[in-house]
Nucleic acid binder design. Sequence first.
DNA 1: ATGATTGTTACATATCAAATATAACAAACA
DNA 2: TGTTTGTTATATTTGATATGTAACAATCAT
Lengths: 136, 136
Amino acid sequence: MLLYLQPDSDVPLYQQIRDQIVAGLATGQLSPGDPLPPIRQLAADFGVHFHTVNKAYDLLRQEGLIRLHRRTGAVVVCEPAPPEFRGQWRERARVLLAEAFVKGIPPEEILAECTALLNSFQPANAHSDLSGGAST
Amino acid sequence: MLLYLQPDSDVPLYQQIRDQIVAGLATGQLSPGDPLPPIRQLAADFGVHFHTVNKAYDLLRQEGLIRLHRRTGAVVVCEPAPPEFRGQWRERARVLLAEAFVKGIPPEEILAECTALLNSFQPANAHSDLSGGAST
DNA sequence: ATGATTGTTACATATCAAATATAACAAACA
DNA sequence: TGTTTGTTATATTTGATATGTAACAATCAT
């Protein structure tokens, strides 16, 4: 799993690290049980301070996506979503979808983008293909 | 169009203002040609500084969603998306969808959420209903 | 027990963003 | 002319970001 950072982005470095690990989880490049590199090693690979990586790992821990142990390191767990997750996620999705909508992108195309992205996720769910228009 | 702010949110105030105006545009509560309140008045309504509202308006102007004039004030315009919009939007959507996916929400439900949100947008597009599963 | 590896915590510091505050300026219209 | 509007400048306070140094604590192999 290859990671790269954009130091001049408006997205904080620890957030970029967290986001790419989440994306790696979705695409199946990372699976529950897999170990993550030690924070100091990952920091050295990126050329950032280990505190920055530590903050990213701490975020992922708070989200229930990884578990941290001394000596053992970080491992992927992917705990189920807490009750408040859906509502908060929906609000963020509302703004993101609204942005595309008001910029004139047709709702069918927006949905097609989402479908394509979801289909690019975990091969474990490859049996449930979300083509939508293929069967009609 | 009713706006409210959460001062203790991790989302900056100017971003909250911007997001709610974008959402208002999507739902049709705001339409091209509509005027927006003067920054000083909106700031007074919110109990924030006019610079905070000014930053939100400036963001919307950079995005091509409003146009600003002295004396006249701000009006909605909704310019079409620039070429780089799609790619940047897709990257943000990728992370957001990945978050829901790795938290165990089935892709069908994620798509259903997106569909419902898109259907809640502008009645001007009400003729193209994206139900997908209602007709079966 | 020893020692190395790992995450964890505590300080400190520099830089930048967010939000407020005050003031002045400039275009536009009645 | 004068008011309303956005615009710009400067300053300040607070918090977030990122780095740096140092030490601590659990864990596992030896």
